[in-house]
Amino acid sequence: MSASPSAPLSSPGSRPIVIDCDPGVDDAIAILLALASPELDVRGITTVAGNVGVERTSRNALQIAELAGRPDIPVFAGCHRPLVVAPIGGQFHGESGLGPLMLPEPSRQIQPPHAVSFFIEILEDALARTRPITLCTLGPMTNIAVLLRVRPDLIPGIERILSMGGAYVEAGNRTMTSEFNILADPHAASIVFSSGIAITSLALDATHQAMATPERAAAVQQGLGGPVGAAVKTLLAHWDRNDPRRYGSRGGPMHDPLVIAALLRPELFETRKARVFVEHSSALCLGQTVADWYGKSGETPNVDIVTRVDADGFFALLGERLARYGLREAS
């Protein structure tokens, strides 16, 4: 599905989604990708403490929605800390969460209700309309876990969760075994993964295949213009890890945007089913996601784990969609 530069970036036939996030450099690019895609109807953005505190992630979400020309997208602040463990904070996003990117003050402020209350409202409506919601989780799963604890009857209102988090074959990016989003609230992740909801997991195994190398970043930037283009250029430049020993090249892995791309272009991804367990009691392996690939646990597979990514296809999609902002501003 495509849209002319002046067409609205969503339509009545779009897939309804909610983005639960902790913006975050790569969260910001993911939100911009979603809001540029008419196939998706972003019903709201919910925020959680993760890369930075929830006050800052909420402000960042408001600023990104305004940058995208979508101040109508509601933003709801969620949980201010993990369920059990102490907050750990992100390492690569800077004090603001958006690296060196400076955006104007948002024209709106966060309003009630709490993110979990918003989930209850939208899922009750989804059940009444028999049109379930897809949840895209780009940060710690605290909000979703609280929702599942207080209103498990609303699970049928969730079509699927697409989650950026975990590490199965790859080593962790925050500890030897664990990826940041899961480590930040392993108890919440355990609740979500054991909920019975259909889940697609985009872990480091997938995201490390989608490196924004200098060549790919330059190709994406060629079609960009206007304030969104300038912001994306700043974000991509900041995201270069400059660690070829770890990643095989310069650049940074496009973690969160892959979640949105998996909705838009599922043919770019290969998955494998497995039972997933989350370690939440070991000091050494806290936050580790363990995949039972061969049925050793005797439990039914519960997650579609992304194992392969067409990286060139993904970056082509990213560049094409982000370029729409410049086209719209020029029209």
Rank of each mutant, 00 (worst) to 15 (best):
Q209Y: 07
L103Q: 03
R131V: 14
V169S: 12
Q91V: 00
W239K: 12
L32C: 04
F118N: 04
R272V: 04
Y325A: 10
M211K: 04
V192R: 13
I88F: 01
T46E: 11
F193P: 00
L62F: 07
A145G: 05
T177V: 10
A262W: 12
G225M: 07
F76C: 10
R321A: 06
P100C: 05
F119Q: 11
G229T: 05
M1H: 14
N181I: 04
N302Y: 09
R241D: 08
F277S: 09
P71Y: 08
P301A: 11
G13I: 11
L224Y: 04
T177G: 07
M102K: 14
V220C: 03
I64D: 00
L322K: 11
S2Q: 14
G225H: 08
L258A: 03
T289K: 01
K273L: 11
V228E: 05
F193N: 02
E270C: 09
V52H: 03
A291Y: 08
A262Q: 15
S297H: 08
I110F: 07
S6A: 15
L98N: 00
L224T: 04
S11L: 14
P112F: 09
M254C: 08
L258F: 03
V25E: 00
S163V: 15
L9N: 12
A212P: 05
P23V: 05
S195V: 13
